[in-house]
Structures are given as C-alpha cells and as structure tokens.
C-alpha cells in the first residue's frame, strides 16, 4: 500500500541540451499516476543533496515511469550522473492532477519550457484532442517535438522568445492571435468553450491567469514551489490563494487560475 518505493533506473539519457529523460522500473507500481501528479525522487547516497526533488510524471508505459527533467540545480546535477541499474527512492504519485474536461469543452494546453513534461500525459490521455501552445526560450529547449506531432490531432503552435522556431514571442501572444483569427472567431460562445491548462515558469502562469480572467475562460495552472516532505506535513510548499495559503503538494499542484493571488 505504500507510496514509498525503490526503483531501478533503466534509462537516464539526454533528450536535448540540458534535459534528460529518466526511466524508472519500480519494484511494483501500487498506484497509477494521473496527468499532473508528481513523484518525489531521492538519490539517497549522501546528505547533500538531502531532500528528494519533485518531478511531474511524464509517462507511464509498460510498468515503467518516465520523467522528463531539466538539469538546473544540485539535485538534478546529481540525478544526471546516475546510471542504468542505479537505484532511487520514489514517493508517489502525489498531488491532485489535472481535472479532465467535460465533453463540450475544448482543452487548450499551454506549456512553457520543461512544463511540457506535466502537460504531455494530459494530451495523451485526451487522445491528442487538444490544442497545444508550446513556448521556450529557443529552439534547442523544445522537447519531444516528434512525439507531440505524432500525438496531437489539433493544432500545435510553437513559439520561441528568439524566433528560432515557430512564432517569435510568448505563448500568450500566440494564444491571442489564435483566439482572434478567422478560423477561431472570437464570439463569446466559442471562447467560453475553451478550457486552459498551463504549466511553466511562474511569470507565464501569471500571464495565463490574467489572460483567462480577461477573456472569461476557465483555466487550470500547475504551480511549483520548493518542497520538503511532499505529503502535506511540513507546510513548506505553500502558495497564496484567495482562501489563504495552500499546499502545492496536497491541494495542488493544479489550481484554478482565478484562485491564485499573484504577488
């Protein structure tokens, strides 16, 4: 019954500059992850890094758990060095995950950078029937493009800050164009059918929340904070909401966009 398990690494290879795909074969998966849920992964060989790090589930396939991660700090630098056959400690699945949209709604996914890791399984679960706005700083930081092209049955709109791939500009710019273009008339009844799902850096999530509020569209965003326990005990990962501080690990990581108080 425990969500605390050991897992062997079956793959830990670069997928792009500064990004790896970690594939884990757990002793036994007690509970299947939902899109938007996460695991705490610990390398456990020293006291530095001491704590586990939270990672969104990217995929579950044939008894294995896949995590797409950006190498960013001490924890992921250490994780990058781990080899096939090495063992990690795994706590999860944790958190709430994305709510599944009703049939009459059109899901629009907005991913910034490594945020694609969390939204990919949602697109997969919805059989690719989603519009995906995917932004990164530059072409080299776009991940899993071939997989996404194979999966999506609606539009994949890419934007980069430097214009090296897709539209130049932010995902919000691209979203604005999309909603006002001819093929998607901006009538109230059509935009109100959209349901936004976003995961990415905090400024992007804030912009998505504002955008959703202005257009009167419902949106869900996946939040990130430094985390210690992952199970709701330490109150370390809270974010400010209209109803006080809430825990990213327990009430989140997915929150209604209108719920978050941006400071």
């Amino acid at each position: 019954m425990s969500k605390y398990i050991r897992a062997k690494i079956t793959e830990n290879a670069p997928v792009n500059k500064g990004h790896n795909l970690l594939v884990l074969s757990p002793d036994n998966i007690q509970q299947h992850p939902l899109p938007g849920q996460f695991y705490m992964i610990g390398t456990d060989f020293s006291y530095d890094p001491l704590l586990k790090r939270p990672f969104s589930i990217f995929r579950e396939a044939s008894g294995e758990l896949q995590f797409l991660y950006r190498i960013k700090g001490k924890g992921t630098e250490r994780m990058k060095e781990m080899k096939k056959g090495d063992t990690v400690n795994l706590l999860g699945p944790l958190g709430n995950g994305y709510p599944i949209p009703g049939k009459n709604l059109t899901p629009v996914l907005i991913a910034g950078g490594i945020g694609i890791a969390s939204l990919f399984p949602l697109a997969e679960k919805l059989s690719g029937n989603v519009h995906l706005f995917y932004g990164a700083r530059t072409k080299n930081e776009l991940l899993m493009l071939n997989e996404l092209k194979g999966l999506l049955r609606k539009e994949l709109i890419i934007s980069t800050d430097d214009g090296s791939e897709g539209r130049k500009g932010t995902v919000i710019d691209a979203l604005n164009v999309f909603l006002t273009s001819n093929s998607h008339p901006p009538q109230a009844d059509s935009t109100s059918n959209f349901l936004l799902y976003a995961c990415g850096p905090s400024p992007m999530l804030e912009a998505v929340s504002k955008f959703a509020a202005e257009k009167g569209i419902k949106g869900y965003i996946s939040m990130e904070e430094n985390m210690a326990c992952g199970v709701g005990a330490c109150l370390g990962c809270t974010v400010k909401t209209k109803k006080g501080y809430k825990r990213v690990c327990k009430e989140g990581p997915v929150f209604s966009a209108e719920e978050i108080v941006w400071t």
Binding site: P49, L50, L51, E225, N226, A228, C234, C237, T238
Partner: peptide
C-alpha cells in the same frame, strides 16, 4: 514563500 530551502546536509525553514 519560499518557506523552505535546502543547504548542505540540511534545510532552512
């Protein structure tokens, strides 16, 4: 927030 941050062999809260 941030309310926790890891330091060598420890954490600040």
């Amino acid at each position: 927030p941030p309310r926790v941050v890891e330091t060598p062999a420890g954490m600040l809260n």
